[in-house]
Design a protein around this nucleic acid. Structure first.
Lengths: 195, 195
DNA sequence: CATTTAACTGAACGCCCGTTCATTTGGAAA
DNA sequence: TTTCCAAATGAACGGGCGTTCAGTTAAATG
């Protein structure tokens, strides 16, 4: 039996990506089979190939999609004001964007080594673009004399690692709300870079 | 042909662990087969089972061994002095221990989800013990009035994420030596937690 | 030199993998 | 009502998986 009601491609496509994301976040790309993903959606493995040319592209689409969403959201955030205000904006944006997306974050930062060379390069370029947004804020603040950042590139990596690390312990419905977490981390970020 | 010269178990055992560590760090536990590990060592897959009861235990031994080394080294470091000195000691210890062991760090922080439930619990307990060492320093400093740390547990996670993140970009022979990296990170850690 | 045995081989076990494709299904279009 | 075709099925492909084990090899032992 096929297509029980209405056209399914609009429905099944997203369901495939959702199932793949959840399963890969939980067990890892290499440990999840196409048959498992199909079973989660409720179809046969062969039908997956109506929605992706192969398993590698399915992973790539998840990761590239996440990075594209991230960069688009950052652009929308439209950080303004002096360097300190823009750093606060970036910090709060990062936390607010990442906290509700634990699976995307996990996959995007853990499955890089399972991307083909060219897919890796594409995702890495987007990561670099995001990092550069923070780095330019740090450099501007350094020029203004507001920040003391001897090596902006390293500080960028340090701050992003610190902020992204929240996903390692945060669980929705935990003892701390996003506002509280933002306040704590912004305090640390501010103190770590200001003169 | 077996045992070409001398008793091999003392030699082959470490070579199995070395090969497994390198391959798993590079490709991931699920993506590496016992046959690949055996080929790297130069033996047949079946011979691996002279050195490990199964693949899962091989992974666990690598991860538990790394954590045991870490905890033993921390104990040896024997941090002393006031809270600020002990925090500096911890920071520099963490960097010095982790920098020369990129494969162990990678495996220990990326393959947790591939451990069986009980193996995960064992490794997690050791991680918690390490984290608690830092947290107690932060709490002591807070009590002394030297640190301003509203939530010591979160600050602990934030600092460890920041420090461990060095492994994401550091490459031996890169532009920065360990001393320089220690100085930069200690500066950020100190400013992030002091009043 | 004869014997023992740790270390390893090589084949086999049943099972799961990613992917392809001829065929079937059933809602939508004519 | 008939036709069409998107969306599925289900079987098959070659291959790799973790693990076991009877048999082989050669260093160590007596």
């Amino acid at each position: 039996m096929a297509r029980k009601q209405g056209s399914h491609s609009d429905i099944t496509g997203p369901r495939v990506r959702d199932a793949a994301l959840r399963l890969i976040a939980r067990h890892g790309y290499a440990a999840v089979s196409m048959r498992q993903i199909a079973a989660e959606v409720g179809i046969q493995a062969g039908a997956l190939y109506n929605y992706t040319p192969d398993k590698q592209t399915l992973l790539f689409d998840l990761m590239q999609g996440h990075m594209a969403d991230l960069l688009a959201a950052l652009k929308t955030a439209d950080l303004q004001g002096d360097s300190l205000a823009r750093l606060e904006g970036f910090t709060r944006f990062h936390i607010r964007f990442h906290l509700p997306r634990p699976d995307q974050v996990f996959v995007s930062y853990m499955e890089l080594r399972n991307l083909s060379d060219e897919n890796f390069a594409a995702v890495e370029a987007m990561r670099r673009e995001y990092e550069d947004a923070l780095e330019s804020i740090l450099r501007a603040g350094e020029a203004e004399g507001v920040f003391a950042v001897p090596d902006p590139r390293i500080t960028t990596m340090a701050l992003i690692a610190m902020l992204t690390g929240i996903s390692n312990w945060y669980r929705a419905g935990g003892r701390l709300e996003s506002d509280k977490i933002e306040a704590i981390y912004w305090d640390m970020v501010r103190r770590a870079v200001t003169v």
